[in-house]
């Protein structure tokens, strides 16, 4: 029963090896979907290319339905998977800063490594920026600490916060994704651009 590493079915070194293999899958799919191109990624915010929306939400619903079904079949113990804790103010502020970085830089960290892997110089410079940004945070930590630790909510699930069952929420998420795919397809027809 999964997760394999938590249940000590595989060793820590095998886990690292599989992390590399999972990374290859991650990088391959991102690049093959066009996430190595900043203009394709930025197209999301102007409606001319909504590949980000389609890939991101299809991946999110695939993985969440997968986790729910795996749990239902007794293949994975969801209480053992890592859920990022929620600190409300830093989550919102961090997200806003990342959003500004996204529209200015055209990448997010994962996609910038994909872009750099195929020779995009703008992606390499973005990565240099990431290193500077992380260093600013680690060096300036005392300045951020108060906000970083404020409004700790634990690691709640959105379905619990809304008082819904996981399956009901996942179903609503699928419906929302289908609605957004429809809007994305409409936007691409309305704001057509050449492929980059």
């Amino acid at each position: 029963m999964g997760p394999l590493i938590v249940n000590e079915i595989i060793s820590q070194n095998t886990n690292y090896l599989l992390a590399f293999v999972i990374g290859i899958g991650f990088g391959f799919v991102l690049e093959a979907s066009g996430f190595s191109s900043s203009r394709k990624l930025a197209g999301m915010f102007y409606g001319y290319d909504t590949v980000v929306l389609k890939v991101f939400f299809t991946a999110a619903i695939t993985a969440s339905l997968g986790l729910l079904f795996f749990s239902l079949f007794g293949w994975i113990d969801l209480s053992l998977i890592y859920i990022n804790p929620t600190y409300l103010w830093s989550a919102i502020t961090g997200g806003v800063i990342m959003g500004a970085g996204f529209i200015m830089g055209g990448f997010c960290p994962g996609t910038s490594f994909c872009g750099a892997a195929i020779g995009k110089i703008d992606a390499m410079i973005f990565i240099a920026g990431l290193f500077i940004g992380v260093l600013i945070f680690t060096e300036g930590y005392p300045l951020f600490e108060k906000m970083y630790m404020a409004e700790f909510l634990g690691a709640p699930k959105v379905s619990d916060s809304l008082g819904l069952k996981d399956g009901v929420f996942a179903f609503l998420l699928v419906l929302a994704a289908l609605g957004m795919f429809w809007a994305g397809e409409w936007a691409e027809k309305k704001f057509p651009r050449e492929e980059y």
Partner: peptide
């Protein structure tokens, strides 16, 4: 490239504050 650098710096700070980026969080 100037905007890529600025965007990267912002994303670097924001991802630490937000405990993860677009992938991790």
């Amino acid at each position: 490239l100037a905007f890529a650098l600025m965007g990267g710096i912002l994303f670097g700070v924001g991802s630490q504050l937000g405990r993860g980026c677009t992938s991790g969080s």
